[in-house]
């Protein structure tokens, strides 16, 4: 009876096969062509098939070779969620709010991913980063970003 000896690799192998199937599925309309005149689909399709094969090998290995016993790590979902959401918030808020408010809000929020965060220090860090980034990026490097964007009354559009 086959049994999974290395669960992590088993999932990893399955994941690789899933990735290659996605590439095959979304590339199904690309012309493959032949080896003389390769179409745009040739290279990705071949690679996807190769990845399926490698995924299968990883799965076979996970059935044969014993995985190292590692203690399960407790997942820190709060930190994980905050750190992933921070750039997404930045991307959504930046065009409307402008650099300074976005940076301040993001830094304060994301700092609570750490268990050592405190409100006072987080706000101080957020203000510091907001000022620094505005000075550095809009003044010194003159990137086309505004410190305050239309959603902010009065200040918006001026910086």
């Amino acid at each position: 009876m086959l049994q999974i000896r290395n669960g992590r690799d088993f999932i990893g192998g399955l994941g690789m096969i899933l990735v290659s199937l996605l590439f095959i599925w979304f590339g199904r309309d690309l012309e493959v062509g032949n080896s003389f005149q390769m179409g745009p689909g040739y290279f990705p399709t071949m690679l996807s098939l190769l990845l399926v094969a490698i995924g299968l090998i990883i799965i076979v290995q996970s059935l044969v070779v014993m995985g190292k016993d590692e203690p399960a790590e407790p997942a820190n979902w709060k930190a994980f969620g905050l750190v992933i959401l921070a750039p997404i918030f930045f991307g959504l808020a930046m065009p409307g709010l402008g650099l300074a408010p976005t940076m301040l809000a993001m830094i304060v929020a994301v700092s609570f991913a750490s268990k050592y965060a405190s409100w006072r220090r987080s706000v101080a860090l957020g203000l510091f980063m907001a000022v620094c980034s505005v000075v550095l990026f809009t003044r010194l490097l003159s990137l086309p970003v505004s410190a305050f964007a239309p959603w902010i009354p009065i200040l918006g559009g001026a910086g």
């Binding site: 930045f90 993001m106 830094i107 994301v110 970003v145």
Partner: peptide, 18 residues
């Protein structure tokens, strides 16, 4: 580190944006 990593994320965001 809890003061450092928010700053790193901030710079990464601006870096990616720019």
């Amino acid at each position: 580190y809890h003061l450092l990593f928010p700053a790193i994320i901030g710079f990464c965001c601006i870096g990616a944006y720019s």
